[in-house]
Design a protein around this nucleic acid. Structure first.
Length: 639
RNA sequence: GCCGACGUAGCUCAAUCGGUAGAGCAACUGAUUUGUAAUCAGUAGGUUAGCCGUUCAAGUCGGCUCGUCGGCUCCA
């Protein structure tokens, strides 16, 4: 006969039936963790499925497993809510989930939180931790919960409750604070020690801009002090990689108030990097059978009416300008222009696929609050191309584009990016058959190339399925970069055709694609990828020559001329400064190679190489250095 | 666009209770000629984002505008 056995949970003795699983015990208390340690059993880890047959003290480990962290973070959001309630009794609560690296909670409160409030809240949270309130779970009827929150005036909780279909709901209480919550939670507030409140931001209730804007407090929370420290350190390091900061420090680009927000000035150094990228981009396009176009920046409103942009995209376009009684608009896209080139004569199936590429500068009126350095701007140059293909060619062309994209990402050394395949949304144009064909082609292409991807179901644009590559910035935020999009819409609108073997007109399928995204966004993520220390082939200045004294200027000029003649981007620092000072400047400019030249070098025909971050590497023959650096440039070596 | 914070010399920052806007670096001039991350001295640099207001007096307090930052929303 199974007997009741005593098990200590949350410092209280409880009776359980023999053979109860660890999972059941924790569910009872609303406490769950993947790895569970049982104190009193020699520190042996118990699995959730283990049965308990003797008296034990059970508590969840402070786990760094994903589930454990989520529970920890969610629990931390509860004690933040409790702390806020203590300090601001009028507060109304919305939601407070765990997120990557931490948590947030949305509050409705008259008073606007200021940074000092975060400190106070954090202090109060530490008090709550100190008291070590147990988290206790209680199942109540929905009606009971409604009454509870109605009395407290918690309108947001009531709204959530009204959407829960179940008859019973669970409530979690720690100390004087009770929240509607599915759980699970850690056993008690004492488990939550490694957290930090980071920022306060506005957020619409339910993420809908028609709703009231609430105040959201973000925090970080980890299982261990080390992990929290590591994360806070990461945030500090990320600030140093910020392309906006580096753009200023390295004199790459600027944005001028008088010119306008979101409009980029490329300074000489930034423009040089862009030139290198563009040259490479163009060469690769020629290799892959593309033809280049140049098209205007403005077009009559009529064009945008045909394309549909006037009806569906107007709020994102700069206002029309009056010219000779007609209206012109800045282009937000290049596609209609490319279509017009295609349509400039009758096309045969023999001409297909047609691949038109252009570094096309477009202007989009982005809302002021979304602008972000180089990563979200109002004027930018897409490395655009449009392909006109037959249905039979679709798959091969998509593979070609994705292979191209992969080649670019690898050459530029990106190691952080995510690929998404977006499928048919509810509202769409084109035939189901074509959607099927295109979606499959995209899937086959991405799989053939061995690229890991995720599916975004229903997230495709109305005119066709697409694959997006999202580049990741220093803080881990995603920015859409390369993309290939199938378009069933524009060929219809513009009545694009080709004459088939049967002598009849057919509708080609159109592909839009960018392999970098835009020059601005790509450059921004590139700066963050390398923290401004570009590989030699991309560096705006590849070599800095530092003569030790004026006496060495002649030799320095000789070295300079030789490198310059070989197309190396070289600068000679002939200022009357100390060598140490010039070395420091060169290092701060993140120049890959610094050559220090004095008597020894001049006599032996050598150069003393100082490599970025590595320090002095000693002297080598000038010719040997030339060979090495030319090799690295040619191979686009990534250090 | 929305919520909040912020805006001082080219850059990084200071300026107590509202009482003459300062420093370092950079720039310029001169001296210095140096062996791997800052040579010394001097000079110049400002309508404190802009406008309006309160006040004897505004970088500082209030209002509006512009811009930036963090989010939200948006992102053909």
């Amino acid at each position: 006969m199974p007997e009741n056995i005593k098990i200590t949970v949350n410092d209280k003795e409880n009776l359980f039936k023999e053979g109860t699983s660890v999972k059941e015990i924790f569910e009872e208390f609303g406490v769950l963790s993947r790895e569970i340690i049982a104190g009193g059993c020699n520190g042996k880890l118990l699995n959730l499925s283990d049965k308990v047959n003797d008296s034990r003290v059970i508590s969840p480990i402070k786990s760094s497993s994903p589930e454990g962290e989520e529970i920890l973070r969610h629990s931390t959001s509860h004690i933040m809510a409790q702390a806020v309630k203590h300090l601001f009794p009028d507060v109304k609560f919305a939601i407070g989930p765990a997120i990557e690296n931490g948590f947030y909670y949305d509050f409705d409160l008259e008073h606007s939180f200021v940074p000092e409030d975060l400190e106070k809240i954090e202090k109060e949270m530490k008090e709550i931790v100190k008291v070590n309130y147990p988290f206790s779970k209680k199942l109540v009827s929905k009606e009971e919960a409604v009454n509870y929150f109605k009395e407290k005036g918690e309108i947001y909780k009531l709204e959530i409750l009204s959407e829960i279909p179940d008859d019973t709901v669970s409530m979690f209480t720690q100390g004087d604070f009770t929240d509607l919550c599915r759980g699970p939670h850690v056993p008690s507030t004492g488990y939550l020690r490694n957290f930090k409140l980071l920022s306060v931001a506005g957020a619409y209730w339910r993420g809908d801009e028609k709703n009231k804007m609430l105040q959201r407090i973000y925090g970080a929370a980890f299982a261990t002090k080390e992990e929290l420290k590591k994360y806070l350190n990461f945030l500090e390091e990320a600030k140093k990689r910020d392309h906006r900061k580096l753009g200023k420090e390295l004199d790459l680009f600027s944005i001028n108030e008088n010119i306008g927000p979101g409009l980029i000035l490329w300074h000489p150094k930034g423009a040089m990097v862009r030139k290198v990228i563009e040259d490479f981009w163009k060469d690769e396009h020629i290799k892959r059978g593309y033809q280049f176009l140049y098209t205007p920046h403005i077009a009559r409103v009529d064009l945008w009416k045909i394309s549909g942009h006037w009806d569906f995209y107007k709020e994102n376009m700069f206002s029309p300008m009056e010219v000779d009684k007609g209206q012109y608009m800045l282009k937000p896209m290049n596609c209609p222009f490319h279509i017009m080139v295609y349509k400039s004569k009758t096309r045969s199936y023999r001409d297909l696929p047609v691949r038109y590429a252009e570094l096309g500068t477009v202007y989009r009126y982005e809302k002021s609050g979304v602008l972000h350095g180089l990563l979200r701007v109002r004027g930018f140059t897409q490395d655009d191309a449009h392909l006109f293909v037959t249905p039979e060619q679709l798959e091969d062309e998509i593979i070609g584009v994705l292979d191209f994209t992969k080649h670019m990402i690898e050459t530029f050394g990106f190691d952080k990016y995510n690929i998404y395949l977006s499928t048919r949304p509810e509202k769409y144009v084109g035939s189901l058959e074509n959607w099927e064909l295109a979606t499959n082609s995209l899937r086959i292409a991405v799989e053939k190339l061995g690229l890991p991807y995720k599916i975004d179901p229903g997230e495709g644009v109305f005119y066709g399925p697409k694959i997006d590559v999202k580049l990741v910035d220093a803080l881990g935020r995603e920015w859409q970069g390369p993309t290939v999009q199938v378009d069933f819409n524009l060929p219809e609108r513009f009545d694009v055709t080709y004459i088939g073997q049967d002598g009849k007109a057919h509708r080609p399928i159109m592909l839009h694609r960018v392999v970098l995204g835009s020059m601005e966004r790509f450059f921004g993520t590139l700066i963050e990828q390398y923290a401004g220390a570009f590989p030699v082939w991309l560096a705006p200045v590849q070599v800095k020559i530092i003569p030790i004294a004026d006496a060495h200027l002649d030799y320095a000029k000789k070295v300079y001329n030789l490198l310059f003649e070989h197309g190396i981007r070289v600068e000679l620092d002939s200022r009357s400064e100390k060598m140490n000072s010039k070395v420091r400047d060169s290092e701060k400019e993140k120049i890959p190679y610094t050559l220090v030249l004095g008597n020894r070098e001049a006599e032996n025909g050598t150069v003393s190489i100082r490599q970025r971050k590595k320090g002095n590497l000693g002297a080598v023959k000038l010719e040997d250095f030339l060979t090495e650096i030319l090799g690295k440039i040619k191979n686009r070596t990534i250090d």
